[in-house]
């Protein structure tokens, strides 16, 4: 087994609202090996961003971590004080966000915003820090870095802003990069460039990456290992080839079936019927059973565990467990 950089065990991040507790992340365990890209995929509201924010300690009130551990190189982040957490943020783990348009402070020059990340963590003078920023700008493919350094966010295009965000994330050479839907707000050609850039940076620097996306195409192209989330839980996990070639959970199958393919003639786009259940009123059994084409009576009354089907491939479904057993 590869060396594990980030290990999340039984993480529970809940929203404690007046109307009740909403389990946005419920008993999630995942591992990010060193130097690998691990993906979390799922539809909006399934808890993927909450998982990332739990790692970064960026949960907003009334959300907070209610249980579980987050180990970075064996150190439990949930046990650290806020000062120590802050040291890790930006230096060991950094994050890029979905919306490059709103993720940069509109009234501060972008160069300064990136430089700030260095100045917080390292004892270097401003000129030295600026040179480092320019170097990273070149690395992430920002042309004319000196000129861009003096720009305000509104003077840059979406793609350039996301490159600035990546530069900000990379500038302290973190061990783990969390990319929360990094290309969702960008158009397709820019998306491809940004994804290629992230992949290259990971390869060249040995950095790990936790990539969050709702786009299976992006996941397939980028990741070594994939976790599929649904209603706050991981429903399937496996390496990228197994997952795409032999999906076990009906939800994963549904997601894969709803991808548009150019080499296929289809009358209608296939979709997963229904909507994600309200997290505060989850069904008694499997959370997916009311939308599942393969559900049985057992699914409605009993909650499935995450069953390991093969080494590294697991599915939270009675059906996939049974079909696996019948194969053997």
């Amino acid at each position: 087994m590869e060396e594990c950089l980030l290990e999340i065990n039984h993480l529970k991040s809940y929203f404690f609202t007046r109307k009740g507790v909403s389990p946005a992340v419920d008993d999630v365990s995942l591992r990010v090996p060193r130097g690998k890209i691990v993906g979390i995929v799922g539809e909006s509201g399934c808890g993927k961003s909450m998982t990332a924010k739990s790692v970064m300690d960026l949960l907003k009130y009334p959300g907070r971590i209610a249980g579980g551990t987050i180990l970075l190189e064996g150190r439990d982040l949930t046990k650290l004080g806020s000062r120590e957490r802050r040291k890790i943020r930006g230096e060991d783990i950094s994050m890029i966000f979905q919306e490059p348009m709103t993720s940069l402070n509109p009234v501060v020059k972008v160069g300064k915003q990136v430089r700030e990340a260095i100045l917080v963590h390292q004892k270097v003078d401003r000129t030295e820090a600026k040179n480092r920023v320019l170097e990273v700008f070149r690395q992430v493919g920002i042309s004319e870095p000196e000129k861009r350094y003096e720009c305000y966010p509104h003077e840059l295009s979406g793609g350039l802003r996301q490159r600035v965000m990546i530069a900000m994330a990379m500038v302290c050479k973190p061990k783990l990069l969390i990319a929360d839907e990094p290309t969702t707000a960008l158009d397709v050609t820019i998306e491809a460039q940004i994804l290629k850039l992230i992949k290259e940076l990971c390869k060249n620097s040995g950095m790990s990456c936790l990539l969050i996306s709702h786009n299976l195409g992006v996941i397939a192209q980028m990741c070594d290992y994939v976790y599929v989330m649904y209603a706050g839980k991981i429903v399937e996990q496996g390496d990228v080839f197994t997952l795409f070639d032999h999906p076990a959970h009906p939800y994963t199958k549904g997601l894969l079936a709803s991808i548009i393919r150019l080499d296929e003639q289809r009358e209608r786009l296939s979709t997963i019927p229904g909507v994600v259940p309200n997290l505060m009123h989850l069904p008694k059994g499997c959370a997916f059973c009311n939308r599942c084409p393969e559900s049985s009576a057992r699914c409605e009354t009993e909650r499935p565990e995450l069953y390991e089907l093969r080494e590294g491939h697991a599915s939270r479904c009675f059906g996939s467990l049974e079909s696996e057993a019948s194969h053997e």
């Binding site: 919306e99 993720s103 917080v120």
Partner: peptide
Amino acid sequence: EDYIDTAKAKGL
């Protein structure tokens, strides 16, 4: 705002 998250994520 999102940029406040960015600032926090930087470790400020």
